[in-house]
Computed example of a mutant assay.
Amino acid sequence: MKKIIILLSCVVIIFLGILAYKQYQRFITPKLVQVNGIQYVLTEGETDDNAIDKKLGVINKVVDRYSYLNNDFESNFLPIGSSLYSSKEEPGEQIIYQYDGRLYEANQLQQKNK
């Protein structure tokens, strides 16, 4: 009986470890969107209508969270139909996205040189 309890306890501990690891991976994977061949990291920094220059388009494809973005207007987080705008403040370096009825900033992803 003790062996069964120990075995079940080990299985539960391993299962909880796997769940914790998946949550950690989800937390560290950046939320991205691609526009004009440039990838942007979605931030939680809110902005307002005054920062919008013009509408760039809408998200037309959502990819798996761990997949690479290959085409413009793809995201691994934003739902299809989410609007994307250029920014007056930092054109090219920053865009604005709409999520859940609010506007947020997204910053250009800085690629490391290999």
Results as ranks from 00 to 15, higher is better:
I4N: 11
I4C: 09
I5Y: 07
I5S: 05
I6W: 03
I6K: 02
L7W: 09
S9F: 04
S9G: 10
C10D: 09
V11W: 06
V11A: 12
V11M: 14
V12G: 02
I13D: 12
I14C: 14
L16Q: 12
L16P: 05
L16H: 11
G17E: 07
I18D: 09
I18K: 12
L19F: 09
A20Q: 12
K22C: 10
Q23I: 04
Y24M: 12
Y24V: 10
Q25A: 14
Q25K: 14
Q25C: 12
F27V: 09
T29Y: 07
P30V: 08
K31Y: 08
V33G: 00
Q34E: 11
V35I: 10
V35R: 05
N36H: 14
G37T: 04
I38E: 03
I38R: 04
I38C: 01
Y40L: 04
Y40H: 02
V41K: 06
T43W: 02
T43M: 04
T43N: 05
E44D: 12
E44V: 13
E44P: 04
G45Y: 12
G45S: 13
E46Y: 02
T47S: 06
T47P: 00
T47L: 01
T47N: 07
D48P: 05
D48S: 08
N50V: 11
A51Q: 03
A51E: 00
A51G: 01
K55F: 09
G57D: 07
V58I: 11
V58W: 00
V58H: 06
N60S: 15
N60V: 10
K61F: 01
R65E: 15
Y66S: 15
Y66W: 15
L69C: 03
L69M: 08
L69S: 01
N70F: 15
N70L: 15
N70I: 13
N71P: 07
N71C: 09
N71E: 15
D72R: 06
F73M: 10
E74F: 00
S75T: 02
S75I: 00
N76M: 02
F77E: 08
I80E: 11
I80L: 11
I80H: 04
I80W: 06
I80M: 10
G81P: 05
S82E: 00
S82Y: 01
L84E: 01
Y85R: 01
Y85W: 13
S87Q: 04
S87L: 08
E89N: 15
E90W: 09
E90H: 11
P91E: 10
P91M: 10
P91D: 09
G92E: 02
E93T: 06
Q94C: 08
I95W: 03
I95Y: 01
Y97V: 05
Y97E: 05
Q98M: 14
Q98S: 15
Q98V: 04
Q98L: 07
Y99Q: 02
Y99S: 00
Y99W: 13
D100P: 01
D100N: 15
G101Y: 03
R102L: 06
L103G: 06
E105H: 14
E105P: 06
A106P: 00
Q108H: 08
Q108P: 05
Q110H: 12
